[in-house]
Design a binder for these strands. Sequence first.
DNA 1: CTGAAAGCGCTTACAG
DNA 2: CTGAAAGCGCTTACAG
Lengths: 343, 343
Amino acid sequence: MSTRSSSPTIVDVARQAGVSIKTVSRVLNQEPGVHEETRAEVLRVVKALRYRPKQSARSLAGGRSFLLGLLYYDPSAAFVGRVQQGATLHCREVGYHLVVESLHHDTRDLQEQVERMVMTLRPDGMILTPPLCDSREVLDALRESDTPFVQISPERDLPDAPSLRMDDIRAAEDMTNLLISLGHERIAFIKGAPDQIASAHRYQGYLDALRAHGLQPDAQLIQQGSFSFDTGREAAHQLLSRTLRPTAVFASNDDMALGVLAAAQRLGLSVPGDLSVAGFDDSPPAALVWPALTTVRQPVSEMASLAVDLLVRRRSDPAAEPVHRVLPFELVVRDSTAVRRRG
Amino acid sequence: MSTRSSSPTIVDVARQAGVSIKTVSRVLNQEPGVHEETRAEVLRVVKALRYRPKQSARSLAGGRSFLLGLLYYDPSAAFVGRVQQGATLHCREVGYHLVVESLHHDTRDLQEQVERMVMTLRPDGMILTPPLCDSREVLDALRESDTPFVQISPERDLPDAPSLRMDDIRAAEDMTNLLISLGHERIAFIKGAPDQIASAHRYQGYLDALRAHGLQPDAQLIQQGSFSFDTGREAAHQLLSRTLRPTAVFASNDDMALGVLAAAQRLGLSVPGDLSVAGFDDSPPAALVWPALTTVRQPVSEMASLAVDLLVRRRSDPAAEPVHRVLPFELVVRDSTAVRRRG
DNA sequence: CTGAAAGCGCTTACAG
DNA sequence: CTGAAAGCGCTTACAG
């Protein structure tokens, strides 16, 4: 019923500007070799008509979709949410759009799911987050369809794809150094899931810092967790029930650190008075609990932005050697850590 | 360098199946009027060739993009994350894809942002979450571009768009009833941000439940918050410092309830021993804190699925009267609430 | 039940 | 610096 005329096309613009559609196309795509006056006139008409090139047409003709895909598994993961945020914002800046695809990690047809998505949508690239970025099925589907992708925080780098990560070892080392500088010597550590390389790296950083300060790692103070709240709480319960308690606990992610907080509370220990607690990730709850958690912030937005850039730029230079970058992290010192109480 | 032949098109399928491309198109779009044998043969070839129709071509020719947009403002909001999850999963089932667009609520050019997104991408519909679903600029941009949209939990319903929401009044009433059934009579309430209709509704439900049980609302027990952790903590501090303390606090969202937990802990009150605490939303931290929070779960996945359905179906019946549905919620009883301790 | 033709709105070679 | 032509891979009327 709308009396609104249908959207203007490139033909309308060309006609009004008195040029060919090819010239309009040139201006829109910022190609060189257009007379400045011509360019200005075209732009004027574009603005006057509120003309927007239609993606489906550009896509069909030009062979690129201006779509980037974000593949993820665990939707609740704060990490993915922040990747997405960084990616959408940067996508807008470069004229792309982000399509999100949530996968069931356990399903049989992971490869089929990815393949179908990629073949119908033809995204110009995919952004992969853990644990999917290390899934053979996902990678195979992407390779088979010639879809460029970048891995964010993968278990291991690939020769044929760029990756972006932070230095887990160094971050854990810095956090441990912080605790040491606060006077702590009996610093417990709760390890993460054994099958994730980040667990080993963070543990490594912890050990490095202790050794650099001449402190002996104490097996009694090292517990195995699996990155969950419950394992953190149980590990802390073990650690804190001993007569000779640690004065600080470094949990290798925030969920476990929250578990430590809960255990301390249960046992009537005050944090940070009786016990300092540090986490890793800077998840949303970290800032919401009491006391607010000291933790490590990963450079997630930067990784996401860079991922978008790498994918978009890849078009101009498809044969470029894939980069593997390590980005700087940040220690977020809040209220759960304090100078060790003497006596 | 790849020796891989380019993807098969509808022409390849038609040739191999010995039919016209029109017939292939009919089969793919499940149109009636194709001989069963012909249909089977086409499907066989489709499968053999691993043929997938290209979205950009379908989109350009058919005038629909198979893309749905999710517009949101606050990325960290757990609510939006769950909407997204529900939407992507259902999108896959119906052959659509979800494009996410994060907006800056405060920017001047909200309308311009939305208009640009919609005009280039031409999504077949948009899913709007609070607070954007009530933004005049967003709505105007959508209407002007003839883009169908559905509102999830809007402040108020619109005559020209479907909306999906839960019954806030009833949910708050049920939660209050739960506390009353546990023996509580001095039940405090922390209100949410005054500019959101949900705040008024939840407060209303609280009052309704009290009155139904012959309990007088006590102004001393009612505090104003604004849905943030800090306002929850402050309000709780006020409430719990009095000589005649409440035995239960109903915070009208989880973030504030977490603040109540923090305040109680600070004052040395045990939850739920000395104090029962209830929240609203079932945000991720709600299950992670100690004690785990009793709260209300909104039917978010259902709203998201329905939103997708409404948008997809709208194509077949664009003139249909927009529906305004109220979906059932769920009380999630965890560890922060208990029978009132006597004496 | 099936098909030939036209067209969606752009970009890609190719000319000049 | 600029343009005419062809084509991307589908769907939409329109026929029969």
